[in-house]
Design a protein around this nucleic acid. Structure first.
Lengths: 330, 330
DNA sequence: AAGGTTTCGGAGAGCGCTCTCCCACGTTTC
DNA sequence: GAAACGTGGGAGAGCGCTCTCCGAAACCTT
C-alpha cells in the first residue's frame, strides 16, 4: 500500500474505499504509527499551532502574570476557541529583551502559525516586531504605534462615559481626571469620553493632570489636583493603579473616600480590590475579548478574508462594551 | 554558493573561510533569510523546544493556575535554564481530557523535544501517557504510579520532621495527624517522618485520620480527631488545604488556634496565607526544584547519560530540603 | 457493446534543510 | 620535486510527509 493512500486516510481527504480505510486505520492502531509533524509542516507550511504570548520585560515577570487573574481569564477565553478547531495552543512568555528576540525568531521560523499577543506594557515593541517579521498577529488592546495588525479592544469612550454618568448620578459636580501620557490612544479616549459626558450635563471645565500609569504617579497627580483645584469632589483615573495612588494620598491627607471625594478607576485589575477602599472601576469583558481575539486570528489564518498582495486588507478588529463595577470608592 | 556552505555558517560547524563566512552573514542580513524550522527539524529530529506542561482537569483550571503564585515560581525557575541553552520554552496546558489527548498527540508528533510536567492532582494520568508515548519527561513531584521517568521532589520525611520538631519545641506533647489517602507515596512519607520524630522523643502513639487533600475532608478529619482524641494539642496535616479545614472546624467549635491546638500544614500554598490564622507550614524551594527539573530534562535530551537500549538507565531524580515557615497557627 | 464518466489507488516530485562524502587546492615533509 | 597531509567548498542524498498527476477499474449511457 502506498504512502499516498495512508496520507489520504489520515487526513480524511478524497474518497478511499471503506475497506482500505479500515485496513489503514487498523495498521495505524496496531503499529502505533504517528505522523511526523516536522515533515508535515514542511509541505503544508502549517504547524497547527497558535502562540499565546505574554509580553513584558522587567523584574518579577512571572510573579506578575501568575498572580493577576487577568491572564487566567485571557487563557480561559482563548482555549475553547482553539481547541474547537483542533489548534494546539502554546503559551510563550517574553520576560526579557533576549527572550523577546528568541521568541520573534522562533515564530519567524514557523514555530507557530500565528500569535495572540497580550502586551502588559503600553509601549511594548513586540507587536511591531512580529508584524515586521511577517507573523500573523492579533493583539489584546490597540497597538500603541502604527503597527498594522488585528486587535480587540474595549470601547474606552463608553467606559469613561459610564464612569461619568455614575459620578453624576451620585451627585458629584466637580470632577477631575488623572489622565495618561499623551501618547497612549486608549488613555486619550478615556479622557475624552469622560469630559464629553460631563460637558453634556453642563460641566464644561474638568481639570486634567497627567500620570504615568503607576501608583506613585497617581499619588503625585492627586496631590497636584488637590492643590490646584481644592473643590474637587470626584476623580476619574485612566487606570486602577493611578486610582489606587489617588486614594492613598487622599487618605493620608485625611480626606475621606468616598465621603469627600469619590474615585473611579479603570480596568478592574487586582489593584481595584487591593485598594482601600475597594475601587469602583470599569471592567473589560476579558474572556469574550480573548475569545474574539483568537477568532480573528483563526479567520486570518484560514484565509477567510481574501487579500490582495498589492493592497492588504485593513486588519480586523473588534470593540467591546465595558461594564461599571461599583465598589466602595464612590 | 552552495546551500551546504550557508548551512555550515548558520550552524557554526567546521571551518569556513572568514571571508566567505562574512559574505554569507551579509547575505542573510540583507535578504532577511530565516531557516525553516520544519525542514531543519525534519533532518535533525530536534525542535529546539521544551514544553512546560500544567496539567489538571476540572473546572476553573486557568483560574487555579493563574492565581496560585506556585506556578509563577515554577516558571521563574525553569526559564533561565532553558534560555541559557537557547531552548525555546513553550507552556502547554491540559485543562480537560480532550486537551490532554491533544497534548499527548502533539508531543508524540514531535511538537517539542521533551516535557516538564507539573501535575496539580496526585492521580494525574498525563505523566504515564507521555512516557508511554516515548516523550522524554521529567516531573515536578514523584510519579504516583510506577511510571518510569525523571522527577524532582521534596524530602517529605525531612519536612515532616521539621514540623514535628517545631511542635515539640513549642511544648506540644499530644500530636495527631491528618494523613492522605493510602495510595500517595509522598503523603505516606510525610506521615512516617512525623511519627518517627515524635517516637524518637518518646511519644509513640500518634493518632491518624485520613483525609482526601481537600478543605472539607480536613474539617471532617478534625471533627473525628477531636471526638476520638479529645486531649490533642497539635495537628499536622499532609497539605495546607486539610490544615485549613482543620482550622475552620476548630474555630467553629470555639477552640483557639494556636492557643489550645496548634496546626501545621504542608506546601506553603496560597491556602496557607488565606487561612485564619495564617498557617505554619512546610515550604518547597520551588524555583530551585524547577530549575533542577529543567536541568534533568536537558541532560536527558543532550544524551549526557549514555543509555543502552536493552537496559534503559534508571530515570534521574533529585531530592530537595524543605523549609519550615512559622506563621500564626502554632 | 462501445464509448464516456466517475472512482479509487499508485507513482513520484518536491517541501528546505543537514550532513556525509569527495574533490580541489595549498602546505608541509623527506 | 614528489608524496603525504590538511583545509575549504560543492554535489547530492535523504529526512517523512503531502499532493498533483495518471492510469486502471468500475460504473453509467446511448
Amino acid at each position: 500500500m502506498s504512502r499516498a493512500t495512508v496520507s489520504r486516510v489520515v487526513n480524511g481527504v478524497r474518497n478511499v474505499a471503506p475497506g482500505i480505510q479500515q485496513a489503514v486505520r487498523d495498521a495505524v492502531a496496531r503499529t502505533g504509527y504517528t505522523p511526523n509533524q516536522a515533515a508535515r509542516s514542511l509541505v503544508t507550511r502549517r504547524t497547527g499551532t497558535v502562540a499565546l504570548v505574554f509580553s513584558a520585560t522587567g523584574k518579577a515577570f512571572a510573579a506578575r502574570v501568575f498572580s493577576d487573574p487577568f491572564f487566567g481569564r485571557v487563557v480561559d477565553g482563548v482555549l475553547p476557541v482553539l481547541r474547537e478547531r483542533a489548534i494546539q495552543p502554546v503559551m510563550l512568555v517574553a520576560e526579557s529583551e533576549q527572550a523577546r528576540a528568541q521568541l520573534v525568531e522562533y515564530l519567524r521560523r514557523g514555530g507557530a502559525d500565528g500569535a495572540l499577543v497580550v502586551p502588559l506594557d503600553a509601549d511594548d515593541p513586540l507587536p511591531s516586531m512580529l508584524v515586521a517579521a511577517g507573523v500573523p498577529t492579533v493583539l489584546f488592546g490597540r497597538p500603541h504605534d502604527s503597527t498594522r495588525c488585528g486587535f480587540v479592544e474595549l470601547d474606552n469612550t463608553a467606559g469613561a462615559r459610564l464612569a461619568a454618568e455614575h459620578l453624576w448620578a451620585t451627585g458629584r459636580r466637580r470632577p477631575a481626571t488623572i489622565a495618561a501620557p499623551a501618547g497612549a490612544p486608549t488613555a486619550r479616549e478615556r479622557l475624552d469620553g469622560f469630559r464629553e459626558a460631563f460637558a453634556a450635563r453642563g460641566v464644561t471645565s474638568v481639570p486634567v493632570v497627567r500620570g504615568r500609569f503607576s501608583v506613585d504617579s497617581g499619588r503625585r497627580a492627586m496631590a497636584r489636583l488637590l492643590k490646584e483645584h481644592p473643590g474637587t469632589d470626584a476623580v476619574f483615573a485612566a487606570n486602577d493603579l493611578m486610582a489606587q495612588g489617588a486614594c492613598q494620598y487622599l487618605r493620608e491627607e485625611g480626606i475621606t473616600v468616598p465621603g469627600s471625594v469619590a474615585v473611579v478607576g479603570f480596568d478592574d485589575s487586582v489593584a481595584a480590590r487591593r485598594a482601600r477602599p475597594q475601587l469602583t472601576t470599569v471592567r473589560q469583558p476579558v474572556e469574550r475579548m480573548a475569545a474574539a481575539m483568537a477568532g480573528l486570528l483563526v479567520e486570518e489564518l484560514t484565509g477567510g478574508r481574501p487579500e490582495s498582495a498589492l493592497q492588504p486588507s485593513e486588519p480586523a478588529s473588534k470593540v467591546f462594551d465595558p461594564v461599571l463595577v461599583v465598589r466602595d470608592s464612590t
